[in-house]
């Protein structure tokens, strides 16, 4: 898994590629925590190049969403590949996360 973080004004866009599983989820968590602790609390995560996410990855997103809400920030997700979206739906996450087709749409609505 790789991550690239691009700060666009007050929003941090995290572009993730590869697999988010039990072995890589802690790295994602670390990066997201770093953003939050430096007060970057408006976050867009772009999943365009993510082919797989496990429950371990979803746990990180849930913890991040809760923390951002506590800090009055916001989290937007975009460009989920069909199978990744299926896992989100199965977990009931499509009801609690704001998910967009494109990064532009996510940025406009944060």
């Amino acid at each position: 898994m790789e991550m690239h973080i691009n700060d666009i004004q007050e929003v941090s866009v995290v572009r993730v590629s590869g697999r988010i599983d039990a072995s890589t989820a802690p790295d994602l968590e670390k990066e997201l925590n770093k953003l939050i602790s430096s007060n970057r609390v408006k976050v867009v995560i772009n999943f365009n190049d993510v082919a797989y996410i496990s429950s371990g990855g979803l746990r990180v997103l849930l913890a991040t969403a809760k923390e951002l809400k506590r800090k009055e920030g916001s989290l937007r997700l975009c460009q989920l590949e069909a199978n990744v979206y299926k896992v989100f739906k199965l977990a009931g996450f499509t009801a609690i996360f704001n998910i967009y087709d494109t990064e532009d749409e996510a940025l406009k609505d944060i």
Binding site: L62, A63, K66, G92
Partner: peptide, 9 residues
């Protein structure tokens, strides 16, 4: 079905 704040890990 739980809301974000109540969702368990």
């Amino acid at each position: 079905e739980a809301a974000l704040e109540e969702r368990a890990i």
